[in-house]
Structure formats: C-alpha cells, structure tokens
C-alpha cells in the first residue's frame, strides 16, 4: 500500500468533526424559516407606547423578516382610524415623562393637561424629526408588516373592521400564537 493511499484513508480528527458540526449547525440555522419570522404583540394605547411596536416591526421587515404585529386591548388604538385623536399621553403617574418644570400630580390631573401633554410630546418628536404615527403605520404596511387586530378586544370595545386603518386583519390569540411559535423574535409590548 502506498503512502498516498494511507493518508487518504486517515480517520477524521476531532477538529474535522467540530468543523463539520459547526458548518451543519450554521446551515440549519440559515435555512430555518423561524429566523426570518417576527411576531409582536402591542397592548398599549398611549402615544409614547405606539412607537416601539411600529418601529421594531418595520425594522424587522427591513432585515428580511416576515413580520406580524398583533394589536390587543388598548393597542387597538394604534391601528384605529382615529389614532391621531385616540393616542394621548397622560403626565399623571408617569414620572419618566420629562417636564419643563416638576408639576405635582394634583395639578397634572386638572382638565386640559392630557391634551397639553400630548401636544407637547408630538411637538417634541416633530422637532427631533421623529416620524409621526401615521407615517410609521404607512411605512410598516409598505414594508409588508401584517397588522392584526385582536378579535376579542375589538368586540369588547365595539369596533368593527371599518373602525380600523386599511389592511388590518382580524385574528384570535391562538392564531397569533400559531404564528409566534414559528418566530425566533417575539415581543410583548
């Protein structure tokens, strides 16, 4: 037997095995459709909390993920036709909200404070060139993000299909979970 034949039949080394396993895992990961799927649940209906699901959802679509946002409970405000009026921010009980001067809750609770705080937030965001909610909704839809309204929440609030912006689908919690279980990225916001 020649020397050449001997080396050709050498047993695989531990390094070879590690390399093969690494390559196979990488390939499997790359081919796993779940890595290309994102599912968000948006449960909050205030102006500030309307941003994260729309920004993260759009970004997920931008990195090539098949993305769904499930709007449940107050989150329905975000996809309501009247979102511009419904999404507000309340300074009461919101110590994180930066105010020009510290205002006691008893003053913040006065009539007119919620519209004022909401207008202030919109102005501050606009001044910093942050997209408005309507623009983010359009962007998300354009990027192919599926907007799904929770059927049960819609029923509770008495909303029908016509109450929502175009393109909103209806589904239940189980339908969402059936999607989410195949998604590597899931978030409850």
């Amino acid at each position: 037997m020649s020397h050449e034949t001997d080396t050709a039949h050498l047993p695989v080394t531990e390094d070879d095995v590690r390399r093969i396993v690494r390559e196979e895992v990488q390939r499997a990961f790359k081919e796993d459709p779940s890595t290309r799927k994102a599912a968000f649940a948006a449960s909050k209906g205030t102006l500030d909390w309307a941003y994260p699901p729309l920004i993260l959802g759009s970004s997920a679509a931008a990195v090539g993920m098949d993305t769904t946002i499930f709007f449940t409970l107050y989150g329905l405000n975000i996809v309501h036709r009247d979102f511009a009026r419904k999404l507000k921010i309340d300074p009461v009980g919101n110590p994180a909200m930066p105010m020009p001067v510290r205002i006691p809750d008893i003053v913040s609770a006065l009539p007119g404070m919620v519209p004022m705080a909401s207008a202030m937030m919109r102005a501050k965001f606009a001044k910093n060139n942050i997209a408005a909610i309507g623009e983010l909704l359009d962007t998300a839809r354009e990027a192919g993000v599926r907007l799904v309204a929770c059927q049960m929440s819609a029923d509770v609030f008495g909303y029908t299909q016509d109450d929502f912006v175009d393109g909103v689908e209806f589904a239940g919690a189980t339908a969402f979970m059936a999607e989410a279980r195949r998604a590597h990225v899931t978030m409850f916001i």
């Binding site: 759009s58 931008a62 942050i130 997209a131 962007t139 354009e142 990027a143």
Partner: peptide, 13 residues
C-alpha cells in the same frame, strides 16, 4: 434629517 427607523426603511424601499 430622518430619524430611526426611517433611513433604513427608505433604503429598504
């Protein structure tokens, strides 16, 4: 002058 996520979204489009 666009802020996150708009530059990426414009580029995606």
């Amino acid at each position: 002058d666009l802020m996150c996520p708009m530059p990426v979204m414009a580029a995606t489009k």
